[in-house]
Deep mutational scan, measured.
Amino acid sequence: TEVDLHLGDITIKLKDVSEEIVKRAKELFKNGWSAEFVKKWIEEAVK
């Protein structure tokens, strides 16, 4: 499945990412993480 994760003005296309990771990524962004950091976190999380 593909998900578009909207973080501010940046959209990250996610492939084969669990709902849990998407939820967590949104929380991290809301908590002040930059979109770049969230993207890196996701990449690490799906390895």
Score class of each variant (00 low, 15 high):
Glu27Lys: 05
Gly32Arg: 01
Val3Gly: 08
Leu7Thr: 02
Thr11His: 10
Glu27Ala: 07
Phe37Cys: 13
Glu27Ser: 05
Glu2Tyr: 12
Ser34Leu: 10
Glu19Lys: 07
Val38Asp: 00
Trp33Pro: 01
Glu36Asn: 05
Asn31Ala: 12
Ile10Arg: 05
Ala45Leu: 12
Ser34Glu: 10
Trp33Met: 15
Lys13Trp: 04
Gly32Lys: 01
Asp16Val: 04
Thr1Cys: 09
Phe37Gln: 15
Val3Ala: 12
Lys13Ala: 09
Glu43Pro: 01
Leu14Ser: 02
Ile42Trp: 01
Leu7Asp: 02
Ser34Pro: 13
Thr1Lys: 12
Ser18Ala: 13
Ile42Glu: 00
Glu27Met: 05
Glu2Trp: 12
Ile21Glu: 01
Val22Phe: 08
Gly32Trp: 01
Asp4Gly: 06
Val17Glu: 01
Ser18Glu: 07
Lys47Ala: 14
Ser34Asn: 11
Trp41Tyr: 08
Ser18Tyr: 08
Gly8Pro: 03
Lys40Glu: 15
Glu19Pro: 14
Asp9Trp: 02
Asp16Asn: 13
Ala35Gly: 07
Glu44Met: 11
Ala45Tyr: 12
Asn31Ile: 07
Ala45Phe: 11
Val46Tyr: 06
Ile21Phe: 05
Glu36Cys: 09
Ile12Arg: 03
Asp4Lys: 06
Val46Ile: 15
Lys23Ser: 12
His6Val: 14
Gly8Ala: 05
Ile21Ser: 01
Asn31Arg: 06
Glu36Ile: 05
Glu2Leu: 12
Val38Leu: 04
Trp41Met: 05
Ala25Met: 02
Asn31Met: 12
Ala45Trp: 11
Glu44Trp: 14
Glu19Leu: 12
Asn31Thr: 06
Gly32Met: 01
Lys40Tyr: 11
Leu14Gln: 02
Val17Tyr: 06
Ala35Thr: 08
Glu43Tyr: 07
Ala25Ile: 04
Lys30Tyr: 08
Ala45Glu: 12
Val22Gly: 02
Trp41Leu: 02
Glu20Lys: 07
Ser18Asp: 13
Ile21Lys: 01
Glu20Ala: 13
Ile12Asp: 03
Thr11Asn: 06
Ala25Asn: 00
Ala35Met: 04
Gly8Tyr: 01
Leu7Trp: 07
Gly32His: 03
Lys40Cys: 10
Leu28Lys: 04
Thr1Asp: 13
Ile12Ala: 03
Ala35His: 07
Lys30Ile: 10
Ile42Thr: 01
Glu43Asn: 05
Asp4Ile: 15
Glu27Trp: 07
Lys40Gln: 15
Thr1Leu: 15
Ile21Leu: 09
Leu5Tyr: 02
Lys47Met: 12
Lys30Asn: 15
Lys47Asp: 08
Val46Thr: 11
Leu14Arg: 02
Lys40Ser: 11
Trp33Tyr: 15
Glu2Cys: 10
Ile12Gln: 03
Thr11Ile: 14
Lys40Asp: 12
Glu2Gly: 09
Val22Tyr: 08
Ala25Tyr: 01
Leu7Ser: 02
Glu43Ala: 06
Glu20Arg: 07
Phe29Ala: 03
Trp33Thr: 05
Val38Tyr: 00
Glu19His: 11
Glu2Gln: 09
Glu36Pro: 03
Asp16Lys: 05
Asp16Cys: 09
Gly8Phe: 03
Asp4Pro: 03
Val46Lys: 08
Phe37Arg: 13
Arg24Pro: 00
Asn31Gly: 10
Val3Thr: 11
Glu44Tyr: 10
Glu19Gln: 11
Thr11Pro: 03
Asp4Asn: 12
Leu5Asn: 03
Lys23Asp: 14
Leu5Trp: 03
Glu20Tyr: 06
Leu28Thr: 00
Val17Met: 05
Glu19Val: 11
Val46Asp: 03
Ser34Met: 07
Glu2Ser: 13
Lys23Asn: 12
Gly32Pro: 00
Gly8His: 05
Lys13Ser: 11
Gly32Ala: 02
Ser18Met: 08
Ala25Ser: 02
Asp9Ile: 11
Lys23Gly: 08
Glu44Lys: 09
Asn31Cys: 13
Asp9Arg: 09
Ala45Lys: 08
His6Glu: 13
Trp33Asp: 04
Gly8Leu: 05
Gly32Phe: 02
Val22Met: 09
Arg24Leu: 11
Glu44Leu: 11
Asn31His: 12
Leu28Pro: 00
Arg24Gly: 09
Lys15Cys: 07
Glu27Val: 06
Ile10Met: 13
Phe37Thr: 14
Thr11Tyr: 04
Glu43Cys: 06
Ala25Trp: 01
Glu27Asn: 05
Asp4Cys: 12
Lys23Ile: 10
Ala35Pro: 12
Trp33Leu: 14
Ala35Ser: 08
Lys15Trp: 09
Ile10Lys: 06
Ile10Gln: 08
Trp33Cys: 09
Ala35Cys: 08
Gly8Cys: 06
Val17Asn: 01
Ile10Leu: 12
Glu19Thr: 10
Asn31Trp: 07
Trp41His: 00
Leu28Ile: 04
Glu19Asn: 10
Phe29Trp: 11
Phe37His: 14
Lys40Ile: 15
His6Ile: 15
Leu14His: 02
Thr11Glu: 06
Lys23Gln: 14
Ser18Val: 06
Ala35Phe: 07
Lys30Cys: 07
Glu20Phe: 06
Asp9Cys: 07
Lys30Arg: 08
His6Tyr: 05
Ala45Met: 15
Asn31Val: 04
Lys15Asn: 11
Lys26Gln: 12
Glu20Ile: 08
Trp41Asn: 00
Glu44Pro: 00
Glu19Ile: 09
Glu43Trp: 06
Glu19Phe: 08
Thr11Met: 07
Ser18Ile: 09
Lys47Glu: 09
Val3Gln: 12
Leu28Asp: 00
Val22Ile: 13
Val17His: 03
Ser18His: 12
Val38His: 00
Ile21Tyr: 03
Lys47Ile: 10
Lys40Val: 09
Lys26Phe: 08
Lys30Asp: 15
Val17Ser: 03
Lys23Thr: 15
Lys39Met: 14
Val3Asp: 10
Ile12Tyr: 01
Ala35Arg: 03
Lys39Asn: 06
Glu27Ile: 07
Glu43Ile: 08
Asp4Gln: 14
Gly32Ile: 01
Ala35Gln: 06
Thr1Asn: 15
Leu14Cys: 06
Glu2Asn: 13
Ile21Met: 10
Glu44His: 14
Lys40Met: 13
Val46Asn: 06
Ala25Glu: 00
His6Trp: 07
Glu36Trp: 02
Val3Trp: 05
Leu14Glu: 01
Val22Pro: 01
Lys47Gly: 12
Val46Arg: 07
Ile10Pro: 02
Glu2Ala: 09
Glu19Arg: 08
Lys47Gln: 12
Gly32Gln: 01
Lys15Glu: 08
Thr11Cys: 08
Trp33Ser: 11
Leu28Met: 13
Leu5Arg: 03
Ile42Ala: 03
Phe29Leu: 12
Lys47Arg: 15
Val46Gly: 06
Ser18Gly: 10
Lys47Val: 12
Lys30Val: 09
Glu27Leu: 07
Ile21His: 03
Ser34Gln: 05
Lys26His: 11
